[in-house]
Design a protein around this nucleic acid. Sequence first.
DNA 1: GGTCATGGTGCATGATTATACGAGGATTGC
DNA 2: GCAATCCTCGTATAATCATGCACCATGACC
Lengths: 158, 158
Amino acid sequence: MTGRARRQQVIIDILQRQPVDSQEELRQSLAGRGIEVTQATLSRDLRELGAAKTPRGYQLPSGTTPGRSESARALTPLARTMASFVTDIQTACNTIVLRTGPGHAQIVALEMDRAGLVGVVGCLAGDDTIFVAVASAQRAKELTRELLGLAELAGAGR
Amino acid sequence: MTGRARRQQVIIDILQRQPVDSQEELRQSLAGRGIEVTQATLSRDLRELGAAKTPRGYQLPSGTTPGRSESARALTPLARTMASFVTDIQTACNTIVLRTGPGHAQIVALEMDRAGLVGVVGCLAGDDTIFVAVASAQRAKELTRELLGLAELAGAGR
DNA sequence: GGTCATGGTGCATGATTATACGAGGATTGC
DNA sequence: GCAATCCTCGTATAATCATGCACCATGACC
């Protein structure tokens, strides 16, 4: 009985790393980390966390932070840039769209290019928007989660 | 008489006015406005709109706007701009690409942003080209048709 | 210790949402 | 016209989620 708080912390971590489309899927991910609970408990946890079920999986409300536990990666230039300028990230099939403040898209795109993110086919930046073409929809999903983390946005829309 | 687009506009309107906790509740609100459909249809509509089910009811993704209340759809700024500057429209999966005369892309993209088209995740304009990322390939198709109409291009794309 | 209140959980089940399938209408090409 | 196609939607049902209830553990209090 490691505790509810800890479990919810792990749930946050999982949701930020990978797309989760159902509570059953989440249950299995938790089991993989040695935490076994029923779907009913997850239903309660997700409500308490304020998680939303979107067509692209469960999303945490913005402001939810991962327990610095495992996500403690030193801040890369990309992370700093993203956290500073990116205001929103959305996925659509195999394309990721990032929004920034006016005039900042170029800077962010430059850093993304330098970072050499796996699966990224190319970036195209305007004034406040960046399109990222990704090799596959699947990879786009994953990448979006990662980028949301870097940008410290936690949840996508609203 | 494509009730679908109209219905989705009404759904957006309802979701922005009052909390809706279930599709059944939404169904009743729609019925109150004279639109009668089944829960299955709403499930599809909500997915296309990208709506998320949160502990506080259904939420629309940021950027979704109420859209012209159908009646005022006569000659919008978007329609005028599109008809004036857009020379070609093509769809690729979930991305729509519009071509304009040299230097006109920015103007058109600006109007598209203002229009708050349903399903549009973001626009990016160069000099004579505009990329539009759409939430789904399905929605991209529909939107392309609508845009072709606005641009008075008949069957340009495809 | 005994009793009570509180919080967290599983189980079973009700409520809600998603989807496979097919019908009906519109459009296109012949 | 007629067949082929594409859309949209309802029906039926599967899949998923929420919750009433009971149980157990813990801690406060007598």
